[in-house]
Simulated assay, not measured.
Amino acid sequence: MCRWLAYSGEPLQPSLVILDAQHSLVAQSLDSPLGAETVNGDGFGFGWYPVGSTAGSHPSTFHSVEPAWNDENLREITDAIESPLFLSHVRAAAGPPIQRTNCHPFRHHNWLFMHNGVIHGFHAMKRDLTFAVDPSLYPDIQGTTDSEVLFHLALTFGLLDDPIAGMTRAVQFVEQTGREHGIGYPMQGTIALADGATIWAFRYSSEGRSRTLFHSVDIPTLQEMYPDVPRLKLFGENARVVVSEPLNDLPGAFVEVPESVVAILGPEGYHYEPFMAGAGVR
Rank of each mutant, 00 (worst) to 15 (best):
G121D: 08
Q99K: 15
V255S: 10
K233Q: 15
A263C: 04
K233W: 14
F275A: 01
V133G: 03
S53C: 13
Q223A: 11
A36P: 08
D140I: 01
P227N: 03
L112H: 04
G280W: 13
G41I: 09
M167S: 13
R91S: 06
A124K: 12
A55G: 11
L213K: 11
M167K: 06
V65H: 06
S8F: 07
H120C: 06
E148C: 10
T145S: 10
V255K: 11
G56A: 07
T78A: 00
P105G: 08
V229S: 04
T38H: 08
I119P: 00
G117N: 09
M167R: 04
A279K: 14
A197I: 05
G208T: 04
T101G: 03
F46I: 07
P50K: 05
G117C: 03
R107I: 13
W111G: 00
P135E: 13
G178N: 08
N70C: 09
A6D: 06
F86S: 00
G35C: 07
L25E: 04
G35K: 02
L137P: 01
L137W: 05
P246M: 06
V65L: 08
L87F: 15
L30P: 00
L12H: 11
T221R: 09
G41D: 14
T212L: 07
L87S: 04
P186F: 04
F235I: 02
W111M: 10
E207V: 10
P274F: 03
I164H: 04
P258T: 03
I183V: 15
R203V: 10
D162Q: 02
F157H: 12
E273I: 00
Q22S: 03
I77L: 13
H63F: 12
E256F: 01
D249L: 12
H120K: 07
I219G: 02
A55T: 12
V39S: 03
P251I: 04
S24W: 09
V90K: 02
V133L: 03
D128E: 15
S24Y: 07
V51T: 14
Y185Q: 12
E224S: 13
V242E: 12
Q223Y: 10
T190I: 15
H108G: 01
A94E: 11
E259R: 01
Q172R: 15
Q13V: 02
V217N: 10
T168G: 13
A21R: 10
F62L: 15
W200Y: 14
G189D: 08
Y185P: 00
L160N: 10
P59C: 12
P97V: 15
W200T: 06
M1N: 10
R169S: 15
Q13T: 07
L19H: 05
P220A: 06
D71K: 11
P14Q: 06
S24Q: 06
F44W: 14
V51I: 14
T177F: 09
A6S: 15
F122C: 07
F214Y: 15
L74F: 00
Q22L: 13
H152D: 13
A93R: 04
R179A: 15
I141P: 00
D195M: 10
G158H: 06
V241H: 08
D31M: 00
P220H: 02
V133F: 07
E256V: 05
Q22P: 00
